[in-house]
Amino acid sequence: MGKPEGGDATVETAPGNGTAAPRPAVDRPWHAPGGDGRRTRAVRVAVSGALIGATVLAVLLVPPLFPLDQQAVDLTAKLEPPSWAHPFGTDEVGRDVLLRCVYGMRVSLLVGVVAALVASGIGLAVGCAAGALGGRADRLTMRLVDTFTAVPHLLMGIFIVAMFRPGIWPVIASVGLTHWVSTARIVRAEVLSLRARPFVDAAISGGASRLRVAARHLVPGVLPQAGLAAVLMVPHAIWHESALSFLGLGIPAHEASLGTMINGARGSLVTGEWWPTLFPGLFIVVPTLALAGLAGAWRERINPRRRSELVL
């Protein structure tokens, strides 16, 4: 296999370096992304997993251990820069930014997971129906999908939220109702390729009904793909929720969500205090990157020749 000059020979994993069982370098993709060796990939997966684990643990454990009164203010401690007592500093009314970030992450994660489930459920149903029915039903469904892609998702979300404000459910609905399109496309493509396989013909000639073929043979086949899409949708949904909340159209302002926190910090940013703005944003960026790292490694595993891509 010809390597281009100036190739990435230096990042080749040296066999027998003690950290992992020596493997031949041959089964590495020959133009590996970012020149990832086997060891750097293992480190990446471990770091990503640890970050995701820490986020989930913090969100689950911190609220019962450190109860937070959302209205509590301590004006003597307002806008303190990061210190040992307040690692992320305090906000404009003296609340600890780290604690509020964890609480905000809890709201954002709840919205993100529920909305991703709703969107994936709709996408799975629509995609399966379109792929399994075929013909005119398929074409009509795809026109509907075209319609949903013609309006930017955030704008459609803004429209729905504007009509049903305020509260958490309009936000979940606005994310769920706009994000099913990509899942529906993936599922439909997968169903179409499954339909041509012999076991489906066997089931049909065995007398299975349309519904049974769909439920017993097609849905299980697309679940891994749909599952991956659902997991990758969570950060997207969180992004969407925080954007709506930032615009003042999402979660009510007195409740901590990452978007409302960033919006609330705009006043103190103008006077030069950066920490109430920076840290809630990092709570969005870091878990998203960690999840993308895990998803990328997973994809490389099931399809080693394809470049892992971050689908956002």
């Binding site: 100036g6 190739g7 990435d8 230096t10 990042v11 133009h31 590996a32 992304p33 970012g34 020149g35 990832d36 950060p235 992004w239 925080s242 954007a243 930032f246 960033i262 703005t277 809630p280 944003g281 969005i284 960026v285 998203t288 990157l289 993308a292 971050l310 956002l312």
Partner: peptide, 23 residues
Amino acid sequence: PGGVLDRVVTSVSYTLQAAPPFW
């Protein structure tokens, strides 16, 4: 591919991709 420049550009791109524009 795999050089210092590639790694820096790719990592910064992934980070910017995850960051909300308003932030």
